[in-house]
Design a protein around this nucleic acid. Structure first.
Lengths: 321, 321
DNA sequence: TCTCTTTCTGTAAACGTTTTCCTTCATTAT
DNA sequence: ATAATGAAGGAAAACGTTTACAGAAAGAGA
């Protein structure tokens, strides 16, 4: 591997001059600088990231922690992050797997964005305590080294229940999410509050796990109890897909007998029939905002709390009763 | 930041002893070792990744290069990679964005898996030439530092055409992929060859881009020219979804008037109606095999070429004419 | 001519590890 | 008693940068 030492030798200057030249410092004359640059190129010089980050104590890399990459869900989100970060000279890497947790404390990355409910809050806190910068998207945390940007789950869940109620539904099922998910808990809480406002509504909770399989299981239960048209609020779209899937094998029709609304507006939701009513929000903005807050945290050292707005998307999966 | 120097001072030993103790070397007695470990824990010591990789010239991190993260497609693939890698003490990071190309030459990662047609073959070659280890999944390359694992696109495309022909289709449209994609080129080539075997088949190519939008545009053309039932082979499932989407707004029915088969068997394909006929392969295996080859390349320094088998999945989207 | 700036370049320390040699000391064999 | 062996630990170099500081040369002001 060719290092600045080799360049220095070839150029007949010291390594510091090479370093200055390569970093465009004004401390070295234009001619020398250009001569050095030329030699560097000629020798195919590439700096060592390890050496540089050892000395500079930064890597210009940000990590995003995800539980699993599945779901078209993440595409837009990551795109939003990448754009904001690369505009500011940072790179994004996607991390998963228990061992990757070490990236932050070992200073392999300059900061982390967390969207992984299995990451212990304790652990995050200890990182923050050590001076590492974090943005959480999946929990509420208050610490000078942690910013947060959360979905307005409460508004979204309320919107969903109101939509079903408005369409005349009196019997409403809610397919819940996993206990570990902050979003799931917040959505459920809002549902419970919203539903209280409608005294005539009969409300039933069914366990769910945010994946298609649990949507199918929930659908089965709904099917077995079925006697009249019902509304079903799946706390995410993926479970709603599971519900569709189940009912496609029965004689009950989505949007006729079973009225379904989801949450997230994932890409598939617009391609299934009937179009899934759901709660939408900008994944792109969520990602870019999270990145922005992280950069602020790193440079200006100020932590902030932001919220992402949601809106209702109507679909033929929910119609008048 | 606490370093081994601090530990050494507190333990009253030299830094080399600390290093040995922390790395479980037999050069230091069990008692000393345990004492040092305890002090390390007490001081909350975390090693510096930069310092270590500077010295050891390895990071135990593998990078996978993707163009864009969209598509449920990647979930399983990455899962397969992660499993194989973590079993061998490696971490996986997902890289995107032009700047992330530097990770490999700067030795931030020990090897890379390429699934990104926009990555120049030239560039890959120059990395390999420098001694870096690569596995390509999206092109054919022959170099001692490069292994490859490709889909059997030829078999898949042939299977698709044969399936349509077998179902009695005489007019077949092929919605192509982008010129830049190796998979697209291979599939098209195989289609052209396969179609020659059926003299009575009328065969039409339509441009496509591997995304839903181009599927819709292709569908529009097919619709305009429509006179009798046709078969449509979309070179990937995503475009097939676009075709579904277009025809859902017309009076022509998929599986009745327009018979569609895709390629990839992405998750959505089984949730749309009618079920999309497609060419399937194990994304999990593709990923784990790629990782395995990379590890072999790194440890045993031998390069290999592998192929992933494909199979036909029938669906109601293709029926007898 | 001498000193004072200014402009350029070099010296050397530092970042935090790993690892190759040494040194020391105790144990055993002769 | 002496030499040989082995065990335990230490000193120091090395990995490839960055950067504070020092030094030299050259031009300008006195």
């Amino acid at each position: 591997m060719v290092s600045i030492k080799d360049i220095a030798k070839k150029a007949g200057v010291s390594i510091s001059t090479v370093s200055y030249a390569l970093n465009g410092s004004p401390k070295v004359t234009k001619e020398t600088s250009e001569r050095i640059q030329a030699i560097a190129k000629e020798l195919n010089y590439i700096p060592s990231a390890a050496a540089r980050s050892l000395k500079k104590r930064e890597t210009k890399i940000i990590g995003i922690y995800l539980t699993n990459y599945s779901g078209a869900f993440y595409g837009e989100l990551l795109q939003g992050m990448m754009e904001t970060l690369s505009k500011n000279g940072y790179e994004l890497i996607v991390c998963s797997g228990k061992e990757s947790h070490r990236f932050l404390p070992e200073r392999m990355i300059d900061g982390a964005i967390i969207l992984d409910a299995t990451y212990e809050t304790e652990e995050l806190l200890s990182h923050a305590e050590r001076g590492h910068k974090l943005v959480v998207m999946d929990r509420r945390m208050d610490h000078p080294n942690i910013s947060q940007v959360l979905l307005d789950n409460k508004a979204g869940a309320t919107l969903a229940i109101d939509h079903l109620a408005e369409k005349g539904h009196r019997k409403i099922y809610v397919v819940k999410g996993p206990e570990i998910s902050f979003d799931a808990r917040q959505r459920l809480e809002a549902v419970q509050k919203a539903v209280q406002r409608y005294s005539q509504i009969e409300y039933v909770e069914i366990d769910g796990n945010f994946n298609k399989a649990s949507g199918e299981i929930a659908a089965k239960q709904i099917h077995q109890e079925y006697s009249e048209p019902v509304g079903v609020f799946c706390l995410n779209d993926e479970m709603a897909i599971g519900v569709y899937n189940y009912f496609s094998r029965t004689n009950l029709q989505i949007g006729e007998d079973v009225h379904v609304i989801g949450f997230d507006n994932i890409e598939v939701s617009q391609y299934i029939h009937p179009r899934l009513a759901t709660i939408n929000y900008s994944k792109h903005k969520w990602g870019s905002l999270a990145s922005e807050l992280l950069l602020n945290l790193i440079s200006k050292k100020q932590h902030e709390h932001e919220r992402i707005n949601v809106s209702l998307i109507e679909g033929a999966s929910v119609r008048d009763r």
